[in-house]
Design a protein around this nucleic acid. Structure first.
Lengths: 193, 193
DNA sequence: GTCTATAAATTGATAGAC
DNA sequence: GTCTATCAATTTATAGAC
């Protein structure tokens, strides 16, 4: 009897379809009618499962954020040299992106138009702060270059990770592991030579 | 007497405000009423200047794409070693992002919902193809690592560049030159050591 | 759990006066 | 160049039957 609200199976299965359509047409560009068509039911039936369009968005964003924050709590993210913990967080973030692509894609496109979106943006900023702390520690350890601004490096590094949602598709082209390997090689060791 | 359609001054000044609002609320999330409020005129008056909402989007996307393609035609992008031409295109793309931030931001968020958006996406793909060609030549020259997939590297590299629109703001924090320097250092020479 | 029917508001866009 | 007034279509959401 968990005290945290849990979506039941029906709401969850709705969510997969809804998030797919949100990503295809954009959240604002998707009407409840579009969702109904994609689901094969009527608009009215959707309201039996969820309170409305924004509640659907909230469930999706929560799923993405939960998966990303879980990475920060993994043992390899909290133990060992900060440089290695950083690489672990980067690789595991790519893995989360692979496993939860539609949800993370939606998260990264949120602009803060509604309270639901603003809350998600605040949680994203908290994630960024924790990664920035890792980068700063790795620089202080002498494992990462000290001539580059840690805050700037953090943004560029996770900018690279997040940009994957623009083109990466599971099962097509490079695997998530290949992408993570190449991303880490490029950013940690460089393209040159 | 140019044969190409040119927005007059009024249409151009409308565009700056419209693009700012599009980026704040999302294109689909912006109604003509929202635009009218931001412009301080009525909805009807907007139609005196432009054919409609989508025409406004088309003008904005064209401005971003023109600026990006101009970079590819600069002498330093077509002459010299491919590796140096690639670095030049990266640095100049950051500069375009700085100079035309609202327009490029809008471009990078387009999903292809309408013919206008689909045309913009096709031009973006053409830009990516030309950069990918540059990366492949630099690898063939032995100037970039041959153990990394050129197509993958292209996507990661410009994913990093494009991610700047998520946080970079002209005149606040790092300058565009500092960002470009750090971005090139990280991706070409690596964060380590 | 899904439906039909419908409400109430908002949407992009036009007509025509000033 | 901007306005008021208005339209037809679409939007989110609800009521209530099956």
């Amino acid at each position: 009897m968990p005290t945290t609200p849990r979506p039941n199976y029906s709401a969850t299965s709705l969510l997969d379809v809804a998030v797919r359509v949100f990503n295809e047409r954009g959240y604002d560009g998707t009407s409840m009618g579009d969702l109904a068509t994609a689901l094969g039911i009527t608009k009215s039936s959707i309201y039996h499962h969820v309170a409305g369009k924004e509640a659907l968005l909230g469930l999706a964003l929560d799923r993405a954020l939960s998966a990303l924050f879980a990475v920060l709590d993994e043992p390899a993210s909290t133990t060992g040299r900060p440089r290695d913990r950083l690489e672990h967080v980067v690789r595991r973030s790519v893995a989360v992106l692979d496993a939860e692509l539609p949800f993370v894609t939606l998260l990264l496109r949120v602009r803060g138009n509604t309270p639901t979106e603003q809350e998600a943006l605040e949680r994203r900023r908290e994630f960024d702060r924790r990664v920035a702390d890792l980068v700063a520690r790795a620089v202080a350890d002498g494992d990462l270059r000290a001539d580059l601004d840690p805050a700037l490096v953090t943004r560029l590094l996770f900018g690279t990770v997040n940009s994957l949602v623009e083109w990466y598709r599971p099962g097509r082209g490079s695997s998530a592991e290949e992408v993570a390997d190449t991303l880490v090689e490029m950013t940690f060791r460089g393209l040159e030579r």
